[in-house]
Design a protein around this nucleic acid. Structure first.
Length: 700
DNA sequence: CTTAGGG
DNA sequence: CCCTAAG
């Protein structure tokens, strides 16, 4: 409560937005103003701290790493020391701000409620992050002192030890829009609070503006932009940087994207408020998300994390693998690309690193870069002659795919494609944001719109939204929003919300392993490529994705149902949750085992067949075996050309027909396989083999 | 729970 | 593979 009030005040009174954008000098001024303003409380404190930090950082870093320094916000307060140490390293290594270092480990989401905040504390952070925390803490303290609240801490009752102070900051959006989630989101991280505050302030008025401002963390280059979704606001550190501010783009409809500069720091996120939610939902089978509801405030705002984390947890079948791990591990990384364009990806640790390669740090300063936010992705767009979007990369965060062992690589690829396609299937709608405002008039020229200089370009942003409108689904529908953020030189942090899917993940189907075929053939042989696939997937994965990306959560389309991703119109789908089992075509060895069992046991004793030859194959039920036999018989009766799938040796098909014929006549049911034959002749004697019609022998 | 079949 | 009616 308190927080909110504070924040609100601060917001109302202060106009943060402008600050970020402004050049450093301006910013400073800004923060000064803030300080002056008596009304502001925590906010002020924060601002002042930020200002100090900025100054300090600037002084310290300015000389040496100008560009780099800029990138990373350093919020140093008393903490400065650390920053220096830590920050610098980071910069160099990661290139962007924090891409690597920044990555943050998220706590498990398993516990929805506690997660964001509580987790923060708990979560081990990289050194840097720690520094950050401290910083915040300091801030918060000061803040608290004013209020005298220690209470502030847990925003939502959660405990965020370190951050506590911060949380208050988190405050809600100034006003009205709880929806944004901004308010609700509170602190997903303590980290963000500061930034949040700003955002909120901004948001209240004009989301877009706020976005821009906040985001403003731009790097010296201008190009760099930080996007944050939802609540995240620029932090003090952020403020510090920016030369140029970039824009943020927000989602008109619901939320606003804020830039986070924090990305590095933030650990948690909040997803964009609703957006995240909406977007996220369906891809995953509702199952995954079920838990989500539990999440309270956070959930809304930071769908991403939650989603990420949550999904796995909820996943019914396949999760066994270790969803948790992924969830818990989520890392956000920022990555830059050499060009200026930076791609931020949050990773869970999978592939993230790969991206880091690009060495550049925030070099450039290109002028005409714009940031694209699409579902959680940031794209850096460069304006060339006129307006061209130069999208360096588009990454899809995480795809959760349930892969049966038998799935082929090709199938996996198709699955991924389908998942992505389904996400973006509706096409993308591009929106243009200049200086935080949407440019709706499509007929105006760039000149008329004011997009002429590199500077203006800096504030130019694009929004990508899925064309298809999905009805929000309570659970989590599959729809994803992909956000593509772009950033020029700096890294971009991926917006929390979007993060939902960060990497491609393959989830093994339940029974992988061993296939201990009872006796016969190993029908399990198929399990072949999963790993490879998974690895591939991971590689792909590192992106982060934005809300949309959430959607990305891939589902296995045809082959695996595990995740059934439901595309847009799923409503038609059967009851949501019911996932269809992943399809696992019978291998030849399985067919052989089945044939043999049927030869011996006859049809109509499927349970026995199961026990006899497929007892270890948990995924093959006797119904499945019965069905397979049915299809085998059918297959054997049709022309080879009409057969599909893995070809079954004619020999086996012949046996199928023979057994089918035989048992049809003898009514398998009568136990004793040999009933018929046996019966007559030689029951006692020795008949072990029966001649079947076509000459096939059956053991008696 | 199993079978047997249709979907 | 799913769903279900029948045993």
């Amino acid at each position: 409560m308190v927080f909110k009030k504070r924040q609100s005040h601060g917001f109302n009174n202060l106009h943060f937005p402008s600050v970020p954008k402004a050049p450093r000098s301006a910013r400073r001024a800004f923060h000064k103003r803030i300080v002056e303003d008596s009304q502001i409380c925590a906010f002020e404190l924060l601002a002042s701290l930020a200002g100090k930090l900025l100054q300090e950082s600037e002084s310290s870093s300015a000389s040496s790493n100008a560009s780099d320094a800029n990138d990373r916000p350093a919020i140093s307060d008393g903490v400065v020391k650390r920053e220096q140490v830590e920050t610098k390293p980071v910069k160099t290594e990661c290139l962007d701000l924090g891409s690597c270092e920044e990555s943050i480990f998220l706590p498990d989401y398993g516990s929805p409620s506690s997660d964001s905040r509580g987790s923060l504390n708990e979560i081990p952070l990289p050194a840097e992050s720690d520094a950050i925390l401290e910083r915040y803490s300091t801030v918060s303290n000061s803040d608290s002192s004013e209020k005298g609240n220690s209470d502030v801490k847990p925003i939502q009752g959660e405990k965020a030890p370190k951050l506590e102070g911060v949380p208050p900051v988190t405050v809600e959006p100034c006003d009205e829009k709880p929806e944004n989630g901004v308010g609700s989101q509170p602190l997903a991280d303590g980290m963000e609070t500061q930034g949040l505050i700003l955002d909120n302030a901004c948001s209240s008025k004009d989301p877009m503006k706020s976005c821009l401002r906040n985001p403003a963390l731009i790097n010296s280059d201008n190009t760099a932009i930080h996007l944050s979704h939802g609540n995240s606001l620029p932090r003090a550190s952020d403020l510090k940087h920016g030369n140029g501010v970039k824009l943020g783009i927000r989602d008109d409809d619901e939320n606003i994207f804020r830039f986070n500069k924090l990305s590095s720091r933030r650990k948690a996120f909040r997803p964009s408020s609703r957006i995240g939610d909406r977007r996220i939902r369906k891809l995953l089978s509702s199952k995954y998300w079920k838990a989500a509801p539990k999440l309270k405030d956070y959930e809304l705002t930071r769908p991403l994390f939650a989603d990420l984390g949550m999904k796995p947890l909820h996943h019914k079948r396949k999760l066994s693998c270790n969803p948790d791990k992924t969830q818990g591990d989520i890392l956000y990384k920022r990555r830059k690309f050499s060009d200026r364009s930076v791609v931020i990806a949050s990773d869970r640790g999978f592939s993230g690193e790969s991206v880091c390669n690009s060495p550049e740090k925030g070099t450039s300063g290109d002028n005409g870069s714009a940031v694209l936010c699409y579902g959680g992705f940031l794209f850096v767009v460069k304006l060339l002659v006129s307006v061209k979007l130069n999208i360096k990369s588009f990454k899809i965060p995480e795809l959760f795919i349930d892969v049966p062992e038998t799935l082929t690589v090709g199938s996996l690829k198709r699955t991924v494609v389908e998942a992505v396609t389904s996400l973006l299937g509706g096409g993308l709608r591009v929106g243009l944001v200049l200086h935080g405002k949407k440019v709706r008039d499509d007929n105006r020229t760039l000149l008329q719109t004011g997009i002429t200089s590199a500077e203006s370009l800096e504030t130019l942003g694009f929004t990508l939204e899925p064309n298809s409108v999905q009805a929000p689904v309570p659970l989590c529908s599959e729809e994803p929003h992909a956000i593509l953020p772009c950033e020029t030189s700096h890294l971009i942090s991926r917006s929390p919300e979007t993060t939902i899917v960060e990497s491609l993940k393959l989830i093994d189907s339940p029974r992988l392993a061993p296939s201990p075929p009872t006796n016969q053939v190993d029908y399990n042989s198929e399990t072949t490529d999963q790993e490879p696939l998974s690895s591939n997937a991971d590689i792909v994965a590192d992106n982060k994705s934005p809300s949309d990306s959430k959607a990305l959560v891939a589902v296995e389309p045809a082959s695996a149902e595990a995740l059934a991703v439901v595309p847009l119109n799923q409503k038609s789908r059967r009851s949501e949750n019911v996932q269809r089992r992943t399809r696992r075509p019978f291998s030849v060895s399985e067919v052989e085992a089945l044939v043999q069992a049927v030869e011996e046991l006859g049809t109509g004793r499927w349970r026995d067949v199961k026990l006899r030859s497929f007892d270890n194959a948990d995924h093959r039920t006797y119904v499945d075996l019965k069905d397979k036999w049915k299809t085998l018989v059918h297959t054997a009766q049709i022309a080879p050309q009409q057969r599909r799938g893995e070809p079954v040796p004619q020999k086996l098909l012949d046996r199928v027909l023979a057994a089918h014929s035989y048992w049809s006549q003898h009514q398998a049911k009568q136990h004793t396989k040999n009933a018929a034959a046996v019966a007559t002749a030689t029951a006692t004697a020795t008949p072990t083999v029966l001649q079947i019609t076509d000459g096939q022998a059956i053991e008696a």
